[in-house]
Write a protein that binds this DNA or RNA. Structure first.
Lengths: 224, 224
DNA sequence: TTCTTGTCACCTAGGTGTTAATAT
DNA sequence: ATATTAACACCTAGGTGACAAGAA
């Protein structure tokens, strides 16, 4: 079995309509796809991997006046789909289960000619991440679990991790939630009493700090 | 087979008497132990590991007046020796050989009660790093190389990587060579024309920049 | 108009030797 | 005296969204 970590955060994004940035060089996902595994055979070996399937055959556009996504036509042609293999693969069930598995090395790109092994997506299209556990027969492996088990491939889909690929954020609330919850975006946070940390929900009203473009007035907020 | 990478740099340190810092939290080695492998079976699996053996049964002291190491008595009691397994283990011969193998996650500590899995050494003692290739039978593996090969354990020793463990550098020339060649110590370099980069040998005469202890006079040197 | 690209200030995360204080 | 520790300035390395300019 596999349970999604940070589900509450995924749910927050999902309720707003999750967006993920794609860039030429490759951009990580936020939230990061992380799962906790259980039920694996301790000594058998497994490969863990992810891929991304189109949610539909449509291309989207964000209507700012109504703050909602609208269909903008049929989907663009797809690149040959890629699979991201977790870099710790292969490893034993015991190794995978002893702590949360994080796909923080996975990057999304819109460069159709990418040769860095990143996941290629079309911007303004919707995708559903999928998680796969591949059982590697032959090594270790208890006889008990191996007999009745002819399936060596399990796929998990968490609908709350679906997202729209974008080159720039469309929904301002998504931007604010990213800033509020991603530690690397701390520089864009307002000077609220920073108490709560990355897990908290930002206040409903939008709030944005003016950043110093010229190097004057180093109004450092984060007084820790 | 295995060849030592950055051998010229190791040789420079070796000729001065290499020192490696040990700390409670664990300190990386510099130079980093890196090897290029060849002759492995492409599809067989191997574990790569390192350990550290005492060069002798002595404890040392640095005599500043003569700028040399002198014996300061018999060795202190040793902790149960630890082995560092390369985190990419196990992997196939093809994976290990396709690029330089770097042990940059390995850390040295003088904390006898370390529970971070670091290598425990006694300060002011001399050590010889050893590199081991462990063949894992059973998976893949060509029949040709497997027949006549009963050895599944190869050990490599590069004498130029031996060092004295210290909690603070003793030989000032070692300090200067570390500063000149370790990118993370760039902040301590003099404002020479920085052209040459980390591979170059520093000028023979010692040169040291005065660093700003108080936050005044931000005399930034590294004008790139 | 709409979308994409490249640069940038601002962060996180962590590897350096220095230095002063503290053991031993 | 000699050796160790902890805090610190200064780096490397790389992940953020903002922004201005460019492309479609």
């Amino acid at each position: 079995g596999a349970i999604l970590e940070m589900k509450h955060l995924w749910d927050e994004f999902h309720s707003l309509g999750t967006e993920m940035i794609v860039t030429k060089a490759g951009r990580r996902m936020f939230p990061t796809f992380q799962v906790k595994l259980c039920g694996l055979d301790l000594h058998s070996e497994y490969m863990l991997m992810m891929d991304f399937v189109p949610v539909d055959d449509k291309r989207y556009r964000y209507a700012f006046h109504s703050s909602s996504w609208v269909v903008a036509g049929k989907a663009d042609p797809v690149s040959p789909p890629r699979i991201h293999v977790h870099p710790d693969s292969p490893a034993t069930g015991a190794q995978w289960m002893k702590q949360t598995v994080s796909f923080d090395k996975l990057k999304l790109t819109n460069n159709q000619l990418d040769d860095n092994g990143h996941i290629i997506l079309n911007s303004m299209h919707r995708y559903q991440p999928r998680f796969h556990i591949v059982y590697l027969p032959g090594k270790g492996g208890s006889s008990a679990s191996e007999e009745g088990c002819s399936e060596n491939f399990k796929t998990f889909v968490f609908p709350e991790t679906a997202f729209t690929a974008v080159t720039a954020y469309q929904n301002h609330r998504i931007t604010q939630l990213k800033i509020a919850s991603n530690p690397f975006a701390k520089g864009f946070r307002d000077c609220d009493p920073d108490e709560t940390g990355p897990e908290s929900v930002p206040p409903s009203g939008q709030v944005q700090r003016q950043r110093t473009t010229s190097r004057s007035t180093p109004t450092s907020c984060n007084n820790k």
